Structure formats: structure tokens, C-alpha cells
Simulated assay, not measured.
Amino acid sequence: MKKRLQSEEAKKIAISSLGYDHGINLDDIDLTRDLMTDKEVEKIFGISYRTLCNHRKKGLIKYFKMGSKTMYIKQILTMDILKIYND
């Protein structure tokens, strides 16, 4: 139960820190598979680290920090990336 509580708390913190109001159901997020690091984002979307940093700096993609790591929630990041490259 303690692990589940910590996981639910982490989800709430991540969603609230992203400031994203897209009706994302916290139950649909699995932190073991839905969190992505910079390296994973670069590889999956085929963008450079510099491009990723520029998108973050411009506020085009949502992210949050866990300690010193920059993390992304896959569903939100996908929507942000699609918006950037389809506008």
C-alpha cells in the first residue's frame, strides 16, 4: 500500500507541476512505463538534445524535474511534439 501511495503522490506532483489541463486521468499513468528521460525523447522522436532544450526553454513542451533529472510524461509529450511539428 505504501508503494501505491507514493506512486499516486508522484503522479499528482508531476501533473500539477506540468500545469497541464487536458483531463488526463491519473489512473492511466504508470510511472514505470510513462516517464521518459531526455535520452529516450531524443531517440524516440529523432531530435537532438539542443532542440529538446530549445523546446523546453520556449515552453513548447511540458516537463518536470525529479532531483537533477528532467522528466516527461509520454502522453503529454506526444501531444506537445505533435502540435509543434504539425502547426
Score class of each variant (00 low, 15 high):
25 N>R: 08
16 S>F: 05
73 I>T: 06
3 K>S: 14
41 V>I: 05
20 Y>F: 14
83 K>Y: 13
71 M>V: 09
51 T>Y: 01
42 E>F: 04
84 I>D: 08
78 T>K: 07
26 L>H: 02
58 K>I: 09
8 E>Y: 07
28 D>Q: 10
8 E>R: 12
39 K>N: 10
9 E>N: 09
13 I>L: 12
40 E>Y: 00
72 Y>W: 00
62 K>C: 10
85 Y>A: 07
28 D>I: 00
79 M>R: 10
41 V>P: 02
62 K>D: 06
69 K>G: 01
5 L>A: 14
59 G>K: 01
43 K>A: 10
85 Y>R: 10
36 M>E: 11
40 E>L: 05
59 G>W: 02
63 Y>L: 07
80 D>Y: 08
18 L>V: 05
24 I>R: 02
56 R>F: 02
16 S>H: 06
44 I>Y: 07
41 V>E: 02
62 K>Y: 06
21 D>K: 05
44 I>Q: 04
17 S>Q: 11
56 R>D: 05
6 Q>F: 15
42 E>Q: 15
22 H>W: 06
27 D>N: 13
11 K>P: 09
70 T>D: 02
24 I>Q: 06
74 K>E: 10
74 K>P: 02
82 L>A: 04
25 N>H: 04
15 I>S: 04
58 K>D: 12
10 A>W: 06
14 A>R: 00
67 G>K: 15
64 F>E: 06
82 L>K: 10
